[in-house]
Amino acid sequence: MNIFRMLGDLSHLISIFILLHKMQTSKSCSGVSFKSQVLYLVVYVFRYLDLFTNPFMSYYNTLMKIVFIASSAYTIYLMSTVFKPTHDPAIDTFKIEYLLGGSLVMALLFPPKWTFMEISWAFSIWLESVAILPQLFMVQRTGEAETITTHYIFALGAYRALYIPNWIWRYMFDKKAKLETIAVVAGLAQTLLYSDFFYIYWTKVMKGKKFQLP
């Protein structure tokens, strides 16, 4: 554990909190991509299958995994029941079949090991790297986003971006660390996908302006 990893995980928790808070207070999930949320649930379920099989890592690890799966499922539940009338499927039209298919192909081509668990882990890593696309696509379609939604996207992007200095730290100082090539490559790709968003967030939202595409 190092400061970057800790801040990254904290940022992930904050993003979940912001999203739930936005929905609860505005009684609406408008501007939030249901498809991205479904992809995240798929990501956590496939990645954390090891909750039931692998040797115990740490209380921290187990607790976070449960929090991510549970909060993701709860978000889907809210969006498909209570706040369903506020979701507009007509602007949430990204074809997630390609993301699911592409991630599966990558996982089958380069699995860390040829086991079901390792293939599903790799699948979840690739899928996570692109799971934000339906959300970004939705923002692009509407040309703007509520400030609270941009805070959510920023915190979620910052989580993986902070994993990058974490990997560098581990590579340099942690003798026991095993760096996972797939996670690093996918993590870099994921951060790259956010770069445009980060730029607009930084130049507009941070200066108190509305998030609006040029």
């Binding site: 692998n54 976070m64 991510f68 026991k176 996670a183």
Partner: peptide, 10 residues
């Protein structure tokens, strides 16, 4: 160093 099975990152 002992070998740890599985993935320690989230």
């Amino acid at each position: 160093a002992e070998k740890v099975e599985g993935h320690d990152e989230l």
